[in-house]
Amino acid sequence: MHIPDGFLAPNTWAPAWVISIGGLWYCLRRVSRVLRDKMVPLMGVMAAFIFAAQMLNFPVASGTSGHLLGGALAAVLLGPYAGAIVIAVVLIVQCLLFQDGGLTALGANIFNMSFIGSMGGYVIYNLIRKMINKNKGVVIGTAVAAWLSVVLASAACAFELAASGVSPLRIVFSAMVLVHMLIGIGEALISVTVVSFVLKTRPDLLYNEEIRHE
């Protein structure tokens, strides 16, 4: 879902840049308050895994592919703010070094995949985790947050494209949301696989706001 240069008009990409810089600044400040030594390598490993996984496009429908975005997955392990920072690092490197996602569109891409993915994904995950007890809540919460965050990100992307005047909202919205309802299934499967593995081997690595706020 990396928006290239040329799709977004300045009326859209400029405010998105401002929001992303402000949002990342807020994330860095929030994380610096709670960051412990043990989270440092985990942030690096999550960035590495998500970067690698984003290269692995899987086929979803006739002539279309999708790949992991990883926002919800990062949030389940790192929390909403460190998760958003990790996704933003991946997006910035992809944009500057690999020509994946435009430079003008970087703010919008960070908003869609890092903020909606990680912060939005965490809100959904946390809601479900509190309703369903134990590991079941973690797994179901991960699945729903992964799927829904991708669909919501695609909806935000559609609004940005429509605001830029490239396509009427009615048309681009349904097209984007429909295909990402499929891609989101892959997102949920990969996220649940990783989270289930961590639950089995190192459950203490999952982000737990109750413990960190003590």
């Binding site: 860095l28 994380v31 610096s32 308050r33 960051l35 412990r36 030594d37 989270m39 440092v40 390598p41 942030m43 690096g44 490993v45 999550m46 960035a47 590495a48 998500i50 970067f51 690698a52 290269m55 460190a82 920072i85 990790v86 690092v89 991946v90 490197v93 992809q94 070094l97 690999f98």
Partner: peptide, 18 residues
């Protein structure tokens, strides 16, 4: 790319760690 993002994410974490 994988090595680079690992390094940058660890670096950012180290810098903002109190």
């Amino acid at each position: 790319g994988t090595v680079l993002v690992f390094g940058i994410a660890c670096g950012v974490a180290l810098i903002i760690k109190r």
